[in-house]
Amino acid sequence: MENSLSTRRNQFSVFKQPGFTIIALACFIVLYMPIVVLVVYSFNSGTSPAKWDGFSLQWYAAAWNNSAVKTATLISIIVACQASLYATILATMAAMGTTRTRPYRGQNVIYALVNQPLMVPEIVTAVALLICFAVIKELTDYRGLAYLVLSHTAFCIPFAYLPIRARLEGMDRTLELAAADLYANSWQSFRRVTLPQLWPGILAGAMLAFVISLDDVVITEFVKAPGQDTLPTYMLGQLRRAITPEINAISTALLLISAILALFVFLLGRKHGN
């Protein structure tokens, strides 16, 4: 804790709360325990995901040779990247438009609409979307990924919106007002003043949206067009039959990619920090 506040008073840290560090570390252990199991079993040489038979890379080879798994993984990532990007942008705008303002008529309507996807089980939205998109598909004959991206964007919006809104609420406005006093236009003051302060909220929102999109099964199952299986819907199909460690291997590979990304963001953050 080399924060300026704590260095000033080195016997007494204002940050400390009894037990919090232990709970947090326990939390991380719990979060990673199943992941360790997953990674370990991806190197299992047996076919059963539940019994250790020795080290092997065969499931990585199998996953690499299984074009269905590869395509599904790719589609999952493409959809999640697009949907989380769009959802975060839209949610940031909506959060700017609904916080730090005197209550105005319709504000509650916006609030309710933004959070609506959270409030119904997925299967309902899924069936409703199936019916609506079917009409569009029939009229336009277009069956691309846009339907998946659109529906994922929609249900990702509340997940991105809430952290951003939480960050915005009560954020210190003095700097923005100072910027306005210096005749910065509203875009400049947003870009130079609000955005840097808002960045942690946006990052949290974007990560949530990405994760949520990556996980979605039910809506995707009903919206997908031919050849658009994502990793979750591919697994849903396997659920009744047998889940092979191929999936463990793919998941481990994805973890590795995300760990690299994490490092990348960390280094980037360090550069920003300096």
């Binding site: 269905a68 069936v127 199936l130 019916i131 998109f133 079917a134 009409v135 569009i136 598909k137 029939e138 069956r143 199952e221 009903f222 997908k224 067009a225 031919p226 050849g227 658009q228 299986d229 819907t233 591919y234 849903l236 199909g237 659920l239 009744r240």
Partner: peptide, 23 residues
Amino acid sequence: VTITDYDSNATALAKIKAGGHGF
């Protein structure tokens, strides 16, 4: 050939019945 999965008769029926499916 493009293969797409479903996991139940009900889902498959609902999807095809809605139309515009492309299968």
